[in-house]
Computed example of a mutant assay.
Amino acid sequence: MNSLRVLLLLLAASPALAGDAPRSALEETARRESRLVVDSTTDREQVAPLLKAFQQRYPYLQVAYRDLSGADIYRRAISGTQHGDVLWSSAMDLQIKLVNEGLALRYSSPQKAALPSWASWRDEVYGTTFEPIVLAYNRQRIAERDMPDSHTALRRVLRAGNWRVASYDVESSGAGYFFFSQDSRHNPEFWDLAAVLGRSMRYQEGNSLTLLKRLQRDEADIAYNVLGPYAWSFARQHPQVGWVLPQDYTLVVSRLQLIHKAATHPAAARLWMDFVLSREGQQVLAQGSGLPPIRDDLPRRLGNIDLAREAAKLRPIQVGSGLLVYLDSAKRSLFLKRWREQLPAALQP
């Protein structure tokens, strides 16, 4: 009996026997790999604090961080030769397509338990951020009290007045097509809204930052479907730009991360995955990059808005096979044809 107690005490006291061995083995393998390649749609400058924190934790890893579009990440991933070890993209539908095509390495991260149930799929892809899509506006032209704060109110205002709208290029931008197609799933009056958006459209862009600059330069009055963290950060430095969280429903997107099945440095990729999803990594993303955390055990804020209090109107986009619906070529062609019909002749492709 005494021998059994001694053995149990030894098991509890020894990190090597109490469960740290797999982690140590992973780190040792990553040390031998010595390198990690991350392909990402997030600007390097924006995630510089995260990169710094990761390198401090794992100084023996040389990290090559490559800024790419979601479409480029997808193309490289299927090429079989030019892809990174980790693929981190805001093009949620294309990331799911890679998983569906068998190009993601299955990895059950120990951080998974802290994530919402909708934020991962098949232990192959994980959401890393919680980003509401907002309406941004030109405060030189629209008073805060007059800015429509819902999709319904926006439709009414655009129908009644002569407003200049900027939004994503649905035809050429993967994010733009994704945001608009998701809108159509959540808004039964989407095509009524699309009709007035199309008539008011002056600029179609490929990213949120360019849309916000249109407002700043007084070239547009309203920017539709802007990523919340970009709007919040931009408005802090440019007070002539404001933003609102739509009160009828607010889509929430997440930057999805997966490890390529043919990763050259799979152990280093696992360390990166775990770090980004860890409390430390999520706090760095929130405080250093302004990206609200995906973890349920951390507070989520967008500027001065406590997102927990807005839960009833927030509609996180489920990570899973449902994102493949609008990648079907027939559905995509039909959607784009109908959208083109809403645009003025000057913006017709």
Rank of each mutant, 00 (worst) to 15 (best):
Q318C: 00
P299Q: 07
Y58P: 09
Q257A: 10
V284E: 00
R145D: 14
L26R: 15
K213Y: 07
G19E: 02
R5T: 08
V276K: 14
D192W: 09
S40L: 05
V319S: 03
P22Q: 11
H238I: 04
Y107D: 08
D123H: 06
A223P: 01
S89N: 08
L277A: 15
I294R: 03
Q257N: 07
V325I: 03
N304R: 14
R295I: 01
R23E: 09
A312H: 04
L334N: 05
A64S: 12
V284P: 01
R35M: 11
S108I: 14
Q204K: 07
R76K: 15
V253K: 01
W118R: 06
G127S: 09
L245P: 02
L327T: 05
V170E: 01
V63L: 13
Q237K: 15
K261W: 07
S40N: 06
I142S: 12
K313N: 04
V253Q: 08
S329Q: 07
L50C: 03
G290H: 03
D221S: 07
Y326M: 06
L115K: 13
D93A: 13
P110V: 08
L324V: 06
D43Y: 00
D39Q: 13
E101C: 08
D328S: 00
S333I: 02
G84Q: 09
A71E: 15
A194K: 02
V244M: 01
A160I: 00
A308S: 13
G19D: 05
V241T: 09
A12I: 06
P15K: 00
R300D: 10
N2A: 13
G84M: 04
L154A: 14
L327W: 02
A136Q: 04
V284H: 01
Q287V: 07
L98T: 11
H238P: 03
G80V: 15
V226M: 14
L307G: 12
L251S: 05
N304A: 14
E28H: 14
L212C: 12
Y58M: 10
A175W: 14
I133F: 04
L298K: 06
P239S: 13
I133N: 14
V244D: 10
R340Y: 02
S24H: 15
A262E: 07
S200E: 03
K52A: 10
A345V: 11
P293M: 06
M1F: 09
Q216E: 15
A160L: 14
S172W: 03
P246E: 01
Q247G: 03
I305S: 08
S333C: 02
A330N: 08
Q342V: 00
P316F: 05
A18L: 04
R164E: 11
D149F: 07
R295N: 03
V38W: 00
Q342C: 04
S233V: 10
M273Q: 08
D85N: 11
T152E: 03
N138C: 11
N100D: 11
K52P: 01
A64L: 13
D218S: 10
P316Y: 08
V125D: 13
V86D: 12
R309L: 15
S208T: 12
H151N: 08
W191I: 12
P349D: 00
Y224K: 10
P59R: 06
R338P: 01
K52N: 05
Q240H: 11
P344E: 04
D146K: 04
S233Q: 13
A119F: 15
V134Q: 09
S200N: 04
V170P: 02
S278G: 10
D93M: 07
R300M: 09
G242E: 08
D149W: 12
R76F: 14
